[in-house]
Write a protein that binds this DNA or RNA. Structure first.
Lengths: 253, 253
DNA sequence: CACCATGGTGTATTTATAACACAATACTAT
DNA sequence: ATAGTATTGTGTTATAAATACACCATGGTG
């Protein structure tokens, strides 16, 4: 993965610029052709897959770092991105800690210590994202949730936790603005929900519920060209959408 | 707060044993006499208040560290304790970073860098907790939520975030096992919910809802000695309670 | 022993959720 | 053309949950 020289340079640079022992890993969800996708990276010359991640600059806010990582991997900015958990098992980064053990002495090896990672998850527009590998990856690609490679370290757990969080979030926050194109039909939006939740929903009740939230505008023209009855197009009412994000869709109590 | 000698010893010890740049802060909630309480610490000889906190041993899991801190401050163990957010503003610990700037050189000063803190919140039994100050505090005390001293650093924000999380949690998880005594009456439990939520609830609907969850056992004896009709005593059905904790009280969708 | 504050239980009303039916549309096959 | 078919739009009904409110029971007080 790294030659000795590369490693030394990376470590010297990292020690100077990044917070020690801290990383950020991002679970970046996209939606395409009825499938929920996740962005994953493949290491150069190895069959090893990771979530996009990175480190925190010494004076950089955490959210800014996560946004920077997101932008580096997708080109996208100003998007729903949320911290959801810290993963800090003492052994979680052991494979990495030991990977370079014999290459350079531990005191020069920035990776020789335990790392905590802060998990963020993002919902992004599949078609506008431009997956871009980082310097030690040969590939940055969308993978279907049902067709994932085994992820290294605890990245499988991180992904699962993000998905659980997303499903929970669906109960009290609007979802979709960043995952759907600007204009979309109700069946397309429903497909997104069904995919995230992993279950079928009733078409008519779904529509009533969505419209009830007041976050959708119906455009007075249909999507043409389909093989059947042309569905109406909708767009999100951004103002109401963001109000709902703050408030939570329903109160409870 | 520290003499130069004390500081040096602390730093040498910390560098050896703890993860750098990481702390844990705990928002420990208790409930007593109809009031929601939070455990806070007062620094020796200063009018400065903090949330209970501490550091993570080099090979210690995060949850274990949080439990250790909780036990050190309250004597209590095996209690609802949950990570809820990481606070990582680059300036959040600046007052601390600068506090000892002139006392010892930065390379010897463990506090000279930015700290991230992982927020945990706990719900504990007020009467069984034994508030115990740590080494640099003169006092560890319960304070009413409505009568809080100004907290140092971003501890006010940490507390507020914990409270928001707790209120949200109330919608889909059972609460109360660790906050209530073993046996309690329905009005007492209701008071807890009202206090957390900051609003009145209907007595009869509250009772129906709670019983509907199936997490309460009614003991066939009343609480005697009150000035009015004696209410029944209840206890939590621990098995069902823990099942509900896992499942979430309601599904949504 | 009437009074009263509180607790236990029951019942309407309203609201939300779930289940289901039918008409309209636009392409396909013949 | 035209019947067939898959899909969408828009209901209506049935069920369950949340809310609001009424009444009786109890155990102390004056």
């Amino acid at each position: 993965m790294f030659t000795k020289q590369e490693l030394k340079e990376f470590c010297d640079n990292a020690r100077l610029n990044y917070l020690d022992h801290i990383s950020i890993d991002c679970v970046i969800f996209g939606f395409h052709e009825g499938q929920l996708k996740v962005l994953v990276l493949k290491v150069k010359g190895e069959d090893a897959w990771y979530l996009p991640g990175g480190f925190v600059l010494k004076k950089e806010p955490l959210d800014t770092a996560a946004n920077r990582i997101l932008k580096d991997r997708t080109g996208l900015d100003k998007i729903f991105l949320q911290q959801f958990h810290v993963f800090g098992d003492p052994d979680r980064s052991r494979p990495h800690n030991e990977m370079y053990r014999d290459l350079i002495p531990p005191e020069e090896n920035w990776f020789s210590h335990r790392f905590l990672t802060i998990g963020y998850y993002a919902l992004v527009d599949f078609v506008h994202a431009n997956p871009t590998p980082d310097s030690h990856s040969e590939m940055c690609a969308w993978r279907d949730l049902n067709d994932l490679p085994k992820l290294e370290l605890d990245h499988g757990l991180i992904l699962k936790t993000a998905l659980d969080t997303l499903r929970l979030q669906l109960n009290y926050q609007p979802i979709g603005y960043n995952l759907m194109p600007k204009e979309f039909t109700m069946p397309e939006l429903q497909k997104l929900y069904e995919t995230i939740l992993g279950q079928k929903l009733d078409r008519r009740n779904f529509q009533r519920r969505m419209l009830g939230f007041g976050i959708l505008n119906r455009l007075d023209r249909p999507r043409k060209g389909g093989a059947h009855k042309a569905p109406y197009l909708y767009s999100f009412d951004l103002k109401n959408y963001q109000d709902a994000l703050k408030e939570g869709l329903k109160g409870g109590w």
